[in-house]
Amino acid sequence: MPEGHSVHRITRQFIRNYVGHEVRLSSPQGRFAAGAARLDGRTMIDAKAVGKQMFLEFDNELWLRVHLGMYGAWDFAGDILMDATIASANGRMGQTNQRGTVVENTGVDEAIEHGAILDNAGENSLHSIGAPRRTRVRMAESERETDELMAFPPEPVGQVRARLLTDTVCADLRGPTACEVLEPAQIEAIIAKLGPDPILDDGPAAEDRFTTVVRKKPTPIGLLLMDQTVVSGIGNVYRAEMLFRARLNPHTPGRLLTDDAVRALWTDWAHLLRIGVATGQMMTMDGLEGDDYVKAMASRADRHWVYKREGLPCRVCGTHITLEEMGARKLYWCPSCQA
């Protein structure tokens, strides 16, 4: 499932390429035909992400809500303009600015000072997109460039739930959990139920809200971090990595954690999320430099502490990493470091 950093990146591309433009909406698949008709020909005036959900506002006071879920993805095609916050000085987007989490407490400026390193599994963000070269790009958990376009707009490929088309850019949505047209009050109600998102607010009020909720709950912290009403955007990868980085047992009830421990989780989430938005990769290992850094950015197996490392020795203590199920999702952790 795309985690919070991916959805924020996708939203920034809508801001760059769609906000202020008239959009033609259709549903090649047919399942969203009625909703598309309500927005067709309207101008997009805003786009925002909260955790794993994206909201696109149009000039008729209606919103398009999209939740990619487990299988959703956006395909962008056309003369794609780059968002400056995820573009490097060499004019390439996405899998650029890839310094990652190099040392503890690194800021984003420090984290994005280096250029592109291609991820060998496609987990990286958009890469090698030189505007205004016409291309087709997929954005989701695995973001990758496909082929260059010979004609625009391209023919729909597969089951396209919704197509958003301007004169220069086309965005095709496939396989979302949610794709619906809502009124402002409905959007406000949905957002009100979501936990804080550090990209939107990393101030003391958001930290206090997160801390207060966690410390009241008897629920294991490994479940609380995945609860989008507690905190927005954390998925399976970030959960496992954050708990290891904090040396917390996933089964510890939230109410048994110290105030400092919970606040440290919030701070670390804000830190990792900013790195993810800047680089498009869930880089969770600190202190990597030179060849070790390049290797980690090119391979997921070399940039995570515990995720997908079941049966392998812990990078710190040598104990085999454990895999179990928690909340119907796979949980990876070290039974020694996180005892």
Rank of each mutant, 00 (worst) to 15 (best):
H5A: 08
S6C: 08
R16G: 00
N17L: 01
L25A: 08
L25C: 13
S26D: 15
Q29R: 11
Q29W: 13
G30L: 11
A33K: 12
A34M: 03
A34W: 02
G35V: 00
G35A: 02
A37D: 13
R38C: 04
L39Y: 03
D40F: 05
G41V: 07
M44E: 00
A47I: 01
Q53H: 07
F58E: 02
D59I: 09
D59K: 03
L64C: 02
R65L: 14
G69D: 08
G69E: 07
G69P: 03
W74A: 00
F76Q: 02
G78N: 00
D79K: 12
D83P: 03
I86K: 00
S88G: 15
R92D: 09
M93A: 13
G94M: 03
T96K: 01
R99F: 11
E104M: 08
E104D: 12
N105R: 12
N105C: 06
N105Q: 10
G107F: 06
V108F: 04
A111C: 07
H114M: 12
A116Y: 02
D119T: 04
N124H: 14
S125F: 11
R133C: 03
R133M: 02
R138P: 00
R144C: 03
R144A: 09
E145A: 08
M150H: 11
A151Y: 06
F152D: 02
F152N: 05
P153N: 07
P154E: 09
R161I: 15
A162S: 05
A162T: 12
L164W: 11
L164G: 01
L165R: 09
L173K: 06
R174D: 04
R174Q: 14
E180L: 14
V181M: 01
P184L: 13
I187R: 11
E188S: 14
G195P: 06
L200I: 02
D202S: 15
P204C: 05
A206G: 09
E207H: 11
D208H: 14
F210H: 06
T211D: 08
T211L: 07
V214W: 04
V214D: 10
K216H: 13
K216C: 11
P220V: 07
L224F: 08
T229A: 14
T229H: 13
G233W: 02
G235P: 04
V237T: 13
R239W: 06
A240C: 15
A240W: 06
E241C: 07
E241W: 12
R245E: 13
N249R: 13
T252G: 01
P253K: 06
L257P: 02
T258F: 03
D260R: 10
V262C: 06
A264S: 12
W266Y: 14
D268K: 10
D268S: 08
D268Q: 13
H271M: 12
H271I: 05
V277I: 14
V277L: 06
Q281S: 07
M282T: 05
L288W: 00
G290L: 10
D291K: 10
K295Y: 04
S299C: 09
S299Y: 06
D302M: 07
H304Q: 11
R309L: 12
E310G: 14
L312R: 12
R315L: 15
V316N: 10
C317Y: 14
G318R: 10
T319W: 04
H320K: 15
T322F: 10
T322M: 14
G327N: 08
G327V: 09
Y332H: 15
C334R: 08
S336R: 15
